[in-house]
C-alpha cells in the first residue's frame, strides 16, 4: 500500500534535448548543527561519514553513501538514501552522545527538484540572482539563494549541468510551476 504523497507527484516532468525537469522521490535529509569550534564533534561526524565535512561556503563533501552540503559555519545538510536515513540518525546520535549538536530529520521539509540539461543555468538565471560564473561552477558545490520568490538550496551534482534544487514542501508546487514555465522557452 502506498501511503506516501508528494506535492509534485502529479506534475508533468520535462524531458528534452537541452532541458529536463524531474521530481526526485523522497531522499533522506538530515540537518546537522555543530559549532565550528567543536573540532572533536566535527571529527566524529567526519569519521562516521567517511569524509571531511565541508569547511567553506558553497562546498559539498560526498562519497557513495551520502553527500553533505555546507549551509553555514555551524550547519550542514546530510543527504542519503531514504532507507539509510534512520540508521544515519541513530548511529550519529550514538557517536555524538554527550556532545552539543543537533540532528533533525528534514526529509519531508524539503522537496528535491532536479534540473538538468545544457540550458539549466539559463533557466536558473531567469529568477535566481546568483552569479553562476562565480558560484556553482563545478560539481559538488552548493549555494543558498532564491529562485523567483522561493528560497532554495541548489546543489550541483555533476560537471554537466545537473542541479538538485531543494525547496520547502509548501513552496514546491509554486517553484515547480515556475521552473516548468521557465523551461518552456527551450523545449520547443
Amino acid at each position: 500500500m502506498n501511503n506516501t504523497n508528494s506535492p509534485l507527484q502529479s506534475k508533468d516532468q520535462i524531458k528534452s534535448s537541452n532541458i529536463n525537469l524531474e521530481y526526485m522521490d523522497f531522499i533522506g535529509k538530515i540537518n546537522l548543527r555543530i559549532r565550528d569550534v567543536d573540532t572533536d564533534v566535527l571529527n566524529k561526524v567526519s569519521a562516521y561519514l567517511g569524509y571531511e565535512l565541508p569547511k567553506n561556503s558553497g562546498e559539498v563533501s560526498t562519497n557513495d553513501e551520502s553527500r553533505t552540503a555546507w549551509l553555514g559555519p555551524n550547519e550542514f545538510l546530510i543527504q542519503c538514501a531514504e532507507d539509510k536515513k534512520d540508521k544515519f540518525i541513530e548511529d550519529l546520535n550514538r557517536n555524538l552522545n554527550e556532545c552539543f549538536y543537533a540532528l533533525t530529520d528534514v526529509s519531508d521539509y524539503y522537496i528535491t527538484i532536479r534540473l538538468s540539461g545544457e540550458k539549466s543555468i539559463e533557466v536558473l538565471e531567469k529568477g535566481c540572482p546568483l552569479n553562476f560564473k562565480e558560484y556553482l561552477k563545478n560539481k559538488n558545490t552548493c549555494a543558498q539563494s532564491y529562485i523567483s520568490k522561493g528560497t532554495v538550496l541548489i546543489d550541483r551534482l555533476s560537471e554537466d549541468q545537473v542541479f538538485d534544487i531543494l525547496i520547502r514542501w509548501s513552496f514546491a508546487d509554486y517553484l515547480w510551476d515556475w521552473l516548468s514555465d521557465s523551461c518552456s522557452e527551450f523545449t520547443n
Binding site: 504523497n5 506535492p7 531567469k126 529568477g127 523567483s148 520568490k149 522561493g150 514542501w169 509548501s170 513552496f171 508546487d173 509554486y174 517553484l175 510551476d177 515556475w178 514555465d181 521557465s182
Partner: peptide, 18 residues
C-alpha cells in the same frame, strides 16, 4: 513584471492535505 503574473505572481504555500 516578467513571469510574476497569474499563478506565478506570488507563491501559494500548500499543505500536504491541500
Amino acid at each position: 513584471a516578467g513571469r510574476n503574473v497569474d499563478h506565478l505572481f506570488d507563491p501559494e504555500r500548500k499543505t500536504a492535505i491541500h
